[in-house]
Amino acid sequence: MMDILGGAGAPTPAGDLIKDVTEATFMQDVVEASMQAPVIVDFWAPWCGPCKTLGPALEAAVTRANGAVTMAKIDVDQNQRLAQALAQQGLPLQSIPTVVAFVQGRPIDMFQGALPPSEIDAFLKKVIEAAGGEAGGGLGEALEAAEEMLAEGAAADAAQTFAAVLGEDDKNAAAYGGLARAHIAMEDLDQAEAILNGAPAEISDAAEIEAARAQIELARQAQNAGPVADLRAKVEADPADHAARFDLAQALHAAGDAEAAVSELLELFRRDREWNDGAAKAQLFTIFEALPANDPVVLNGRRKLSSMIFA
């Protein structure tokens, strides 16, 4: 075994661990790379004094981790459109240095300003552990079994297993998210929401919990979704009817066609990104959150949305 920040075996070349990233390489070097290992993104600028201290300390910590985490350096002055687009998507980049940890394509944690090396190591350790899951061997196997039950339609059995995991580890985000999803499958949305609201504050923004929250929102929308055929006819009769197109996207998702729903929302965003206070982009993010980060619908949808934002 090895210390989580100590590394083992031959060291990983620094060039593979630390990269200068631009708008053109962000999807590959951050979003897609974070499917394999956490990516720490350092937003900096040449004129930023604290950045000159933090950057080398981050690089040293990432190098010590020896492949458990990688680092992307983004000069915000040279990549202003990328920084603006990420800020529009909710990342607080008003001040630098800002460091954001990406896991499975999503930002899961961050800090701003320079930190001492001990706190940087603690931040990386937390991120690495989150990427590997909080559960140990036995609990990990129980979680896998519960997921299989849920996939096979045995939602009640899955709920019991997720609850048993929480009995052993009351801060297990995967178990909280799984238990909520089991209740969604049983069409008990109020109980699913109550479960997530009861999660400890320190894991309330974990990816598994955010995904379950998004699924609850989509399930509530599905309860009021209109007929797909009628809504499609309205859109075909008047392609500029943005409300009808948005309703069509909701109906398509309720019918189980997430790819078609994303396509309609992207078309709505292309036509009028500010319609209804940016409702198309918000709905896209809800769908992306609800699906696994490596789902082709998510990867393709995020790429197309990013290309529209940067255009």
Rank of each mutant, 00 (worst) to 15 (best):
M1C: 13
M2H: 15
M2D: 13
G7A: 03
A14H: 12
I18A: 06
K19N: 04
D20M: 12
V21I: 09
T22V: 02
T22W: 01
M27T: 06
D29H: 07
V30L: 03
V31W: 00
E32T: 05
A33S: 09
V41S: 02
D42Q: 03
W44E: 00
W47P: 03
C51S: 14
C51F: 11
C51K: 09
C51A: 14
K52N: 13
L58R: 07
E59H: 12
E59T: 10
R64F: 08
A65I: 03
A65V: 00
N66C: 04
V69T: 01
T70D: 05
A72I: 01
K73G: 01
D77L: 11
R81D: 06
L86Q: 01
A87N: 09
Q89H: 11
G90S: 11
V99N: 00
V99S: 01
V100Q: 00
V100Y: 05
F102N: 00
R106D: 01
P107S: 07
P107G: 07
G113C: 05
G113D: 04
P116H: 06
F123A: 04
A131G: 14
A131P: 10
G140C: 04
E141C: 07
L143Q: 00
E144N: 12
A145L: 06
E147Q: 11
A151C: 07
A151D: 07
A151K: 11
A154I: 02
D157S: 05
A159Y: 01
Q160D: 08
T161R: 07
T161P: 01
A164R: 07
D169S: 10
A173K: 03
A174G: 04
A174N: 00
A175L: 04
Y176C: 03
Y176G: 01
A182W: 00
H183E: 03
A185N: 06
M186K: 10
M186L: 13
L189S: 03
Q191I: 10
A192C: 12
E193F: 11
L196S: 06
G198T: 09
G198R: 15
P200I: 10
A206W: 03
A206T: 07
E208T: 06
A212G: 05
R213A: 04
Q215A: 08
L218N: 04
R220P: 07
A222H: 10
Q223M: 14
A225S: 13
G226C: 11
P227W: 15
P227D: 14
D230G: 10
A233E: 15
A240V: 12
D247Q: 15
D247K: 11
L248G: 02
A249F: 09
G256D: 11
A258R: 07
A260F: 14
A261G: 12
S263F: 15
S263V: 14
L266M: 14
E267H: 15
F269T: 02
R270L: 15
R271G: 13
R273K: 15
A280L: 05
Q283H: 12
P292R: 05
N294R: 10
D295G: 08
P296D: 02
P296R: 08
L299E: 02
G301L: 01
R302P: 02
L305D: 01
S306H: 00
F310L: 09
